[in-house]
Write a protein that binds this DNA or RNA. Sequence first.
DNA 1: TTTTCCTCGTTATAGTGTAACATGGCGGCT
DNA 2: AGCCGCCATGTTACACTATAACGAGGAAAA
Lengths: 160, 160
Amino acid sequence: MDPIGFDEHDHAACRHGNIAQVEDRCRAAGLQLTPVRRRVLEMLLEEHRALGAYEILDRLRAEGHGSQPPVAYRALDFLVKHGFAHKIEHLNAFIACTHPGTDHSAAFLICRVCASVAEALAEPAKGNLGRAAEEAGFLIERTVTEAQGICPNCQKAGAE
Amino acid sequence: MDPIGFDEHDHAACRHGNIAQVEDRCRAAGLQLTPVRRRVLEMLLEEHRALGAYEILDRLRAEGHGSQPPVAYRALDFLVKHGFAHKIEHLNAFIACTHPGTDHSAAFLICRVCASVAEALAEPAKGNLGRAAEEAGFLIERTVTEAQGICPNCQKAGAE
DNA sequence: TTTTCCTCGTTATAGTGTAACATGGCGGCT
DNA sequence: AGCCGCCATGTTACACTATAACGAGGAAAA
């Protein structure tokens, strides 16, 4: 619905707006957006691309934070758990949520050439899947959709 | 649409039918369903549950096949590449396709308690996601949907 | 027969993720 | 003030997942 990520846009505003929204949500929910967590979120927001946990970790280390995997994973877990970031399972990588204010099921468009990722709002459990789940008596709690393909920029860039 | 996996059913027939379909497809396409590949497919068919590559590997080893990871991964790659199996990204595990005869986009219902998995046919790229992709100029090649929740059996078994 | 392609097997290593334990800050309680 | 419980950070060590690179053998094409 609003696939940011393949278009030029005011990225500084995009980042700051996102951080502000997350701050609000944290205040409202009594969550601590600590320095490490905040930095990780900022890193994710710096590019509309999924970052691996160890890529995050390298940057944390360079900034004088902890240098061991759990440091990165814990911050990422926090962000994912509260809906401020998403894990792209297909890439084993993480990306900032583009609408952290809302409760939503996520769907992603993943470019297999440049690895950029766009998030679209998806209605959860509609269509065949929802019907199949209902028939089977399966209780859906969370749905993730990942579409792989080629983004407009890479289509222009090269054939194939 | 046809969520096998949570119901009792004639599992022996289910397996043999599947194997037969895969054999046909291989013959038609000039693919080699070698002993290793065939055994791996059979292992996946033995349970309606996703198996990890190393779980597969252990069984191959026990049967006298190669005991190193590439042996399992290559067989799994073959099966996935030709649509005879799917990878469940959320579990880093693999499952036999329940309708190997057809070209399809897959959607899965994954029980977070017992890890059983049911496959449903999903219309690819419909709804919001397809619209978002079209608007953005993104070319979708493959879509995977993974829904997590609780299967009917585990709902009955325990509350929570 | 020789070449080519594919499959299987190996060794070694890279990449991803967690368990378990110690420290230190901060708020509430006595 | 001093104690306590909670939570976040940090550590070491390890488990799990996946791939690169090389070699042997077999079957089909040249």
